[in-house]
Amino acid sequence: MSVKVSMKVNGKPVAADLEARTLLVTFIREHLRLTGTHVGCDTAQCGACTVLMNGKAIKSCSIVAMQAEGADILTIEGVAKPDGTLHPMQAAFKENHGLQCGFCTPGMVMNALDFAKSHPDPTEEEVRDSLEGNLCRCTGYHNIVKSIMAGARAMAGKP
């Protein structure tokens, strides 16, 4: 069955005819060719596919595209400023060496963006808890935790 889906992705309205079984992540990667959102597992554990739907972090591998009908989706490609300047959370990952191979990174950043909104000055423990749904195999999380703590403070305008 083919369905019509429309939503906003990174501020732009998009629409398509899709097979109903198309996952949101497949729509984003294959149809919109926004390949910064990654797929690292098939059991909703790794979080590499995390995007924001109406401002909230969700796993785009775990819903069909139609569940995002009419929603506002933000992917990693829409995070930096239009002139290419990194968002403070992205900058914090760079400054704190919060990424190595880069594959889990978009999911980490997207989840952190949402988390930081409600945690302007998070503790180490709060950050570790917030990463329950994001796996990284390279960094041992050490610098990811530091990045998110610094990025959240930067977003809140704190030094």
Partner: peptide, 15 residues
């Protein structure tokens, strides 16, 4: 700081 980070942080990596 790493030269490769910008592309990974903006979704521009090419896997």
């Amino acid at each position: 700081q790493r030269k490769e980070d910008y592309r990974f942080l903006t979704g521009a990596g090419m896997y």
